[in-house]
């Protein structure tokens, strides 16, 4: 009998998060000094305004929303990268590196070296990294020559292949994908979907951000739509995708 695990692996209660951004008109120390401290150098830009969300273990959860609605910030909050101002956050599981384009790879280093660095930062041991390396070269279909090349010479599709393969190599408990799959070619997209399904069957939880309602319908169990830092609707995929499509009508 497997140990009873709580149903919701991720739980957010009234989460607020904000960016500290430079105050308008002040973007250098000089301007700040010239205002003799009258202007505040930083202002708070509220991005997430009271998010309530529960994500269950083993589900594929879709997240929709216009550009700038706070999706990526929400993902970073879940990944523990973005500090929260207020609210209760509970994430019961290890989060794999957030998959977003051009993020997480060191452009000056080769593919092989990037696997090592990413692996180390994910907390893998030496032998796990070795396994990860074998998995990546098999799954990404990047040749050994490609992997020896500096990542700055990669195409976006190749970068996706590399970072996706690294992130899914070690059976992550929580996998977060931020609008990246669309870059891959048809063959690789199919492979990604298959791997994601495999991971979900193995007990992983996946959060998928995309603008393709087709992708959400194909892969997700549930979805949510976010607008201006607030969740507008959570529920069945059909319902949420319809809601999302209607925003643009």
């Amino acid at each position: 009998m497997p140990k009873e695990t709580p149903k919701n692996i991720i739980s957010l209660k009234d989460i607020h998060a904000s960016f500290w951004i430079h105050n308008h008109g002040i973007n250098s120390v000089k301007d700040y000094l010239m205002s003799f401290g009258l202007k505040k150098p930083f202002i708070r830009k509220h991005v997430l305004k009271g998010i309530n969300l529960e994500i269950n273990k083993g589900e594929c959860f879709g997240l929709l929303g216009r550009n700038g609605s706070g999706k990526s910030t929400l993902l970073r909050v879940i990944a523990g990268i973005m500090p929260i101002d207020k609210g209760e956050l509970s994430v019961k599981g290890k989060v794999a590196p957030v998959l977003a384009l051009g993020v997480g790879l060191e452009p000056e280093l080769s593919g092989h070296e990037n696997i090592k660095i990413a692996g180390v930062l994910m907390g893998l041991t030496k032998s796990e990294i070795k396994k990860c390396r074998a998995f990546v070269s098999e799954f990404s279909e990047l040749s050994d020559d490609d992997l020896k090349m500096q990542v700055k010479r990669y195409s976006t599709g190749m970068m996706l292949r590399l970072s996706f393969s690294i992130a899914v190599s070690n059976h992550p408990e929580i996998l977060i994908i931020d609008e990246t799959l669309a870059v891959g070619d048809q063959g690789f997209q199919g492979k990604c979907v298959a791997r994601i399904n495999e991971l979900i069957n193995g007990g992983s939880t996946v959060i998928l951000v995309t603008h393709s309602t087709e992708e959400i319908k194909k892969m997700c169990d549930r979805a949510a739509c976010i607008k201006d830092g607030e969740i507008q609707i959570v529920g069945e995929v059909e319902e949420v995708t319809n809601y999302y499509t209607n925003i643009f009508k």
Binding site: A79, A100, G102, E106
Partner: peptide, 10 residues
């Protein structure tokens, strides 16, 4: 290292 710090919690 911003790229890495935006993707991994270290």
């Amino acid at each position: 290292s911003a790229g890495i710090l935006k993707s991994v919690n270290v």
